[in-house]
């Protein structure tokens, strides 16, 4: 169902709930139509944008911030920012990278807030909540908690560069676009982050199996992660 609620001609704003329904042909349209729908706050656009980008945004935020109860709130924040700024997108073909960029700004803001809260001692030590992932083995869960402790020691730019490249598996150009920097800067950040993560991870026994030289095939490695 894709429909728009618009006040009937001659009705007041308070009568908007008894307004007529105006179909918007979003269902067969492209990103440009979707952007128009978002810019005009068309309720039908929400379903399309959720279906297209919900999985991507959630995985980006989970991976950038680590698991936690606030992820869904940040997913929603990302879409609300997207709705607000949809009219600013000039190139509909770049909608995916725009969405990723918005998600990264939301992630960066959340990281800043967490850090400040820790500094001001408004919360506990800021430890990572239990990973709510029943499909993950206890060993991998422990390793992942250790990995996010490592990531917490990076600056935000390095952390996000590491996540986009090594966790999300994005191409270098896409990482640069998402972080709003040049390709050369993105490469430097990724390189610097990788080295720093590796150095810090060596102090974490739970991460030792993932640091050893690779002598197993990827199937076994994936099995270990599960």
């Amino acid at each position: 169902m894709v429909a728009s609620v618009t006040p009937a001609r001659g009705t007041s704003r308070t009568a908007a709930h008894t307004a007529v329904v105006e179909a918007l042909p979003l269902a067969e349209h492209d990103d440009a139509a979707l952007l128009r729908g978002l810019a005009s706050s068309h309720p039908g656009a929400a379903r399309v944008v959720c279906a297209r980008y919900g999985t991507l945004v959630r995985s980006l935020l989970r991976r950038s911030l680590g698991p936690g109860p606030e992820i869904e709130d940040r997913v929603q924040d990302t879409f609300l920012h997207l709705f607000r700024r949809a009219a600013d997108v000039r190139d509909p073909g770049a909608l995916t990278s725009f969405v990723v960029g918005v998600a990264m700004r939301v992630a960066r803001s959340e990281l800043r807030r967490r850090r400040l809260r820790r500094w001001l001692l408004l919360t506990d030590a800021g430890t990572l909540p239990e990973v709510a992932a029943p499909h993950v083995s206890p060993e991998a869960r422990q390793a992942m908690a250790a990995l996010y402790e490592v990531l917490d020691q990076l600056d935000d730019s390095s952390r996000l560069a590491f996540v986009l490249r090594h966790v999300q598996g994005m191409e270098l150009l896409d990482v640069a676009a998402a972080l709003g920097c040049s390709l050369a800067t993105a490469k430097r950040r990724i390189d610097r982050a990788g080295k720093r993560v590796e150095a810090l991870a060596r102090a974490k026994p739970a991460l030792a199996p993932w640091l050893r030289a690779r002598d197993e095939d990827s199937g076994e490695e994936a099995e270990r992660a599960r």
Binding site: R141, F162, G169, K195, V197, A201, L207, W210
Partner: peptide, 13 residues
């Protein structure tokens, strides 16, 4: 190692 650690986080998330 960075790529392998990335795979760990990817599988768990």
């Amino acid at each position: 190692p960075a790529a392998r650690l990335g795979k760990l986080a990817r599988a768990a998330t």
